[in-house]
Design a protein around this nucleic acid. Structure first.
Lengths: 163, 163
DNA sequence: ATCGAATAATACGGCGTCGAACTATATGCC
DNA sequence: GGCATATAGTTCGACGCCGTATTATTCGAT
């Protein structure tokens, strides 16, 4: 048995107070939630070094990986990043002010805009991404190859219910 | 090989644009992030039915599982819920206004307060918790016993670096 | 015993997000 | 062809959280 952690202590409290409940799933959710909080902070350190927020990087990354000419509509960005349209408008305002993206007219649909990475934005994105993926790899480096494979299988299975 | 999902498509884009990067960890993080977003929404449905927010429930739950007389200090709550002191003051204001907790003087340290579940708060918490754990169990019901065990082992291992 | 440092909770200002309302443009049906 | 409906993006107001400053109280070293 592994050494008890914070979640074990929480579950033990619940078991004492509400012994009739099935708490296995609560333990899993508790670990996932806390893990997500910690990993989020660790990941953000990379972005902070470049005066970026995670959400801003997510926009730059979506544009960059879409390939040349690095152009997407705000709606497409909203959908892929699971962010409201209003929130996307706000992010794009910031990125545009920072000179990392620019808004262009969409000649085929005048309701729409096209968001394009600037030269500066593309260069920055490549630089940040290199460090970001290295950081992510390091954060998972404690896991064995089998464990990584299991984690991917499980998250893929759970995700399939939603996407 | 499992059917490709949204994250597979994202990784495939990166592979085309930046073939020199090791993207395995990015795929894992991508699935974890999206999964967390979806699970969060699914979990919140239970709380919304009781006019609660997840963060508010977290406070009630921490008090409830601490056992009778269901009393903790704001600082203890901040620590266990990984929330700033300012954020906790705000949550407690709302919970107090809703009549679910009450602030009491701490006779042994006059800098401090004691937060106590009210009778109403304790009853509500028990009711919500019953449904909440059932919902969490249902959300993991696609996983085999082996997969659940793997998930717990992996998250426990990753968490140990932080806690 | 006293004074400086640490701690508890709160107040304040700012930030990022959301939902709803709004404007402009496009689509589809009769 | 014209009009209702849908869609794209933005604006607005509200909300929850954070970091910092503030006030009150306690702890600790001398």
């Amino acid at each position: 048995m592994a050494t008890p952690d914070d979640v074990d202590r929480i579950i033990e409290q619940w078991r004492r107070e509400r012994p009739e409940l099935d708490l296995a799933a609560m333990a899993t959710f508790g670990r996932l939630g806390r893990l997500f909080a910690h990993l989020g902070r660790a990941v953000d350190e990379t972005f902070t070094r470049f005066d970026l927020q995670r959400g801003e990087y997510d926009v730059l990354a979506a544009l960059r990986r879409s390939g040349a000419p690095f152009v997407l509509t705000p709606s497409a960005l909203s959908d892929v990043l699971m962010l409201s349209r209003a929130g996307m408008t706000n992010r794009l305002d910031r990125l545009e002010a920072a000179g990392l993206v620019e808004r262009r007219a969409n000649r085929s649909d005048r309701r729409s805009m096209l968001i394009a990475l600037t030269e500066t934005g593309a260069t920055l994105t490549d630089e940040v991404t290199t460090l970001h993926v290295a950081n992510e790899s390091a954060l998972l480096s404690d896991l064995t190859p089998d464990e990584r494979h299991h984690l991917d299988t499980i998250t893929r299975k759970l995700l399939s219910r939603f996407e």
